Amino acid sequence: MSISERAKMAAGEWYTCIDPELEALRVAARDALHEHNLMRPGERGNMGPALRLLLAQVGDNVRIEAPFHCAYGINIEFGDNVFLNAGCTILDTARVRIGKSSLLGPNIQIYCAEHHKDAALRSAGLEIARPVEIGERVWVGGGAIILGGVSIGNGAIVGAGSVVTRSVSAGASVVGNPARPIPA
């Protein structure tokens, strides 16, 4: 019996994203996102109902401003009191966990997928998924990019426009491309 591409993705192994089961999951996510992004704000509240059902975990008082985009949604976990500003994108091929009371500015991008370096394998859709962990009380400034395999510790600050390629210690402030620690 062969292992499904979804199972490979979940296990952190190389998989092909060109797969009917994964495409069906992406279609379900797009449908939920369509509802969320087009609902009138007064009707939507903190997030559209289909998006809430799609996500792996949603704590109390989680607010996701529209527009929002994710690849699957089923790999995203939010603690209590998380806020995502408008334009955030989470390509959740792996688990993305955002801890309680964390604030993400506008146009934050979280990319879990890493495509194969070999051009032929990349063209065949081969990629690997790396998780992202954002701790509690983290502030991520607008336009920041967070790459797969990164952990951001509790209370850390990521400056606007930063590209986070390595893990960030608890309480640290990082800025730049690639993001580097700055003195407190």
Rank of each mutant, 00 (worst) to 15 (best):
G135R: 13
A94F: 01
A156V: 12
A172W: 12
V96A: 04
V158D: 01
G153Y: 12
G149V: 10
N81F: 11
E136F: 07
V164L: 09
V82T: 07
I128C: 13
I152L: 10
A124Q: 15
V158P: 02
I110K: 00
C112Y: 04
V158T: 04
V164E: 09
I110F: 04
R95S: 14
R97N: 01
A113K: 02
G135C: 13
C88K: 05
D118C: 11
D118G: 09
T93M: 09
A144N: 05
A160R: 05
R122F: 10
H115S: 12
S123Y: 00
G171N: 12
E114R: 13
V158H: 00
L103S: 12
L147Y: 09
E136M: 02
L126D: 06
N81V: 00
G159S: 08
N154F: 09
L103I: 14
R97S: 15
I108R: 01
A113D: 06
F83D: 04
I128N: 07
S162N: 06
I90D: 06
I108W: 01
I98S: 01
N107D: 14
G105V: 03
E127L: 11
G149W: 10
G142I: 02
G141P: 07
P131I: 11
E133V: 15
D80T: 09
C88M: 13
K117G: 15
G141T: 02
V132L: 05
I110E: 01
G153H: 11
L104G: 02
G149R: 08
S173G: 03
L104A: 02
G99Q: 04
V96T: 04
V150N: 03
T89G: 06
V132N: 03
E77A: 15
F78L: 06
L126S: 07
Y111R: 04
A144K: 01
A113E: 09
I152G: 02
G105L: 01
E136Q: 14
G141A: 02
G159E: 04
N154I: 04
Y111S: 09
G141Q: 02
G159W: 07
N107C: 08
P131T: 11
I145W: 00
A119F: 13
S167A: 11
D92C: 08
I145K: 14
E136P: 03
H116T: 10
S101F: 11
S169C: 13
F83M: 13
G141D: 00
G142L: 00
S169K: 15
D92W: 10
E133A: 12
G148A: 09
G149L: 11
R95G: 02
T165A: 07
C112M: 03
S162P: 07
R130H: 15
K100G: 14
A170D: 13
E127H: 08
N85M: 05
F78W: 09
S167T: 14
P106L: 00
G141Y: 06
A86E: 12
S173W: 00
V138D: 01
V82A: 03
P106W: 11
I98Q: 02
L84M: 14
A94T: 03
G159M: 05
D118A: 15
G161K: 05
N85Q: 11
S167M: 07
G143W: 03
V168T: 14
G149Y: 06
G87D: 07
K117F: 10
D92Y: 12
A170M: 10
D118N: 15
A113F: 00
G87I: 09
A119G: 09
G155I: 08
G87C: 07
L126Q: 15
S151L: 00
A120W: 13
